[in-house]
């Protein structure tokens, strides 16, 4: 398998990472090297093997539906790039 430059640009867009033409070319060569390594997997017959998503075979723990955390809003907003009146500011989304 070999990724085309267009595919690299599409992946970069999916990942929301802006890439210049020059960066896309370098990325293409690096990703193709890495996928060459990954391709070794395709030779393995894994029919009937249960996919392993996690190291521990446990079901998700549930907790009481109760408030346990103190209000950390001010502390959390203090580290945000731009806030106003308790809201996170981003460029206008709806005209």
């Amino acid at each position: 398998m070999s990724l085309t430059l267009e595919q690299v640009q599409r992946i970069a867009h999916l990942a929301r990472i802006e890439v210049s033409e020059a960066e896309a070319l370098t990325t293409q060569s690096h990703l193709n090297g890495i996928f060459q390594l990954i391709e070794q997997m395709q030779a393995v017959d894994t029919r009937g093997v249960e996919p392993m998503a996690h190291a521990q075979d446990l079901s998700q723990r549930l907790r009481q539906d109760a408030v346990t955390e103190p209000d950390g809003r001010a502390a959390f907003q203090a580290v945000a790039p731009e806030v106003e009146a308790g809201l996170y500011l981003v460029p206008k989304v709806i005209e």
């Binding site: 990954i38 997997m41 395709q42 393995v44 894994t46 093997v49 249960e50 996919p51 392993m52 998503a53 190291a55």
Partner: peptide, 13 residues
């Protein structure tokens, strides 16, 4: 890719 990798993860474990 992803599911195949998870199946191989099982074989390794």
């Amino acid at each position: 890719y992803y599911l195949q990798a998870q199946r191989i993860r099982r074989l390794i474990a």
